[in-house]
Design a protein around this nucleic acid. Sequence first.
DNA 1: TAGATTGTTAATCGATTAACAATC
DNA 2: TAGATTGTTAATCGATTAACAATC
Lengths: 215, 215
Amino acid sequence: MEEKEISKAVIKRLPRYYRYLGELLESGVERISSNELSTKMKVTASQIRQDLNNFGGFGQQGYGYNVKHLYTEIGKILGLDQNHNVIIIGAGNLGQAIANYGAFEKRGFIINGIFDVNPRLQGVTVRGIEIRMIDELEQFIKENNVQIAALTIPKSKAAEMADLLIEYGVKAIWNFAHTDLNLPEEVLVENVHLSESLMRLSYNITRYEKEHFKD
Amino acid sequence: MEEKEISKAVIKRLPRYYRYLGELLESGVERISSNELSTKMKVTASQIRQDLNNFGGFGQQGYGYNVKHLYTEIGKILGLDQNHNVIIIGAGNLGQAIANYGAFEKRGFIINGIFDVNPRLQGVTVRGIEIRMIDELEQFIKENNVQIAALTIPKSKAAEMADLLIEYGVKAIWNFAHTDLNLPEEVLVENVHLSESLMRLSYNITRYEKEHFKD
DNA sequence: TAGATTGTTAATCGATTAACAATC
DNA sequence: TAGATTGTTAATCGATTAACAATC
């Protein structure tokens, strides 16, 4: 069975579909057409149909899409029907923010460990999760089948720590450090570069000001 | 003078160029060719030259690009040569993480206020910045010429708060709430949807597992 | 059956890469 | 001047949108 490669652009949009469908589901909507959804989401109906058809025919001519069914199916595609064990490396504000955000657990992302280098934090708990020291890392990853590590440490330490995490068996890194990690191809990395996001905002402010107050 | 519209794809890449050039500068590199940079950044040299030429001819034939000069120029394009006043709405872990991240100030993003609804936090300081109550918001925005608001509150309150911020004069919103804000066209919004980022990671893990352990 | 809406092919648009003349 | 490398045009590739036959 030849799996056709799904483009990154499509994958990037999937979680947003999932979010909108979840909200529709909550508000009791049973079915929706690509056209109605396109109005809500401000994308073209054509794109919605094209995107969904990458994964199968979820709709029905003359009817549209069943919200509950589509929601479930996209959830499966995104792997949200399975649990993922997550650890957080770095118990600073950002690490704690992630640990405290309950909605992740609801989606199957189980945070079962937080690690830090600061000995003062040893044993402190965040949302019931004990902060551990790095010397426990290897054993913990292996014993708890940890798949994802959220990396919320300064960039100076990030590359080294990422190597270690991969060596110990982590499969994917959610990287909040402001640097690119150079890891083997099979390691999955999702970067969250907040400073880059802020710079894009700054670019747009600057351009807007130039356009409107040029003199 | 007719400004040609710069594509979003290009703008998205600019901060990454800026980061790499900053690192080169720090390590004392004086000049670099599109080819060398392309190797470091894992993009094509052609793309680098095309991207930069949207903004002007920063290079020199036979020489390449002067690192210092290019760094400065990209900084200007991104608006990092000017200060931007930022407030944070929501003094939770995420809000505090942003407040505590010193590198933003270095880039001209001056955090001069943090707001929350929790009266217990009134007067508490984060990195020397006092947490204020929402009833002070309007006056504060106007008196301090606040351009950017980082929105780190639960999604149930986000839309309403965003409307308020715009009404009070904020020009741009850095949105961390897991929802889309429907604001007037001229308001600039940069979304950071962490749950969507995590879902993309989950998608890739799931697909990877299917490919390698299909049976 | 008539109406609605999908799934899918074809057309368009935009972004990336390749190529090379210009020029330092 | 010869070599290197840009700036820029042309070619390719991929993603989005439009159109419509299939079908519920």
